[in-house]
Amino acid sequence: MIIYLLCLMLFCCGLYCILVKRNIIKIILGIIIAEYAVNLFFILVAYRMEGRAPILSSEVEIVNMVDPLPQALVLTSIVIGLATTTLLVAIAMRIYEKYGTFDITKIKELKG
């Protein structure tokens, strides 16, 4: 239970960064932090006490494996996170080229 709360604290750090900061790169970093926290939460839910990694062996029979299903889903989610981060950074660089700043309060033309 405490470990879930720590994971939630990490998510809230990312959320605070997205809501309060005004630099586009800082907002992207906040999105990355929130994404890490969600990935970590799924794997924490899948953990089993004294568990083993879900890889079978031919010599010994391994009981007590951790849940492999969230691991499979998070594996693709991490790669997608990289792709969306690249897209965000590309947009941010275009904005920098056009307006010469990363500060969202100075980019007036975005408003309309």
Binding site: A53, V66, Q71
Partner: peptide
Amino acid sequence: IIKAPDLAITQIVV
């Protein structure tokens, strides 16, 4: 540590 070695490798590369 929480027994997800595939994810650890992917996370480092990403």
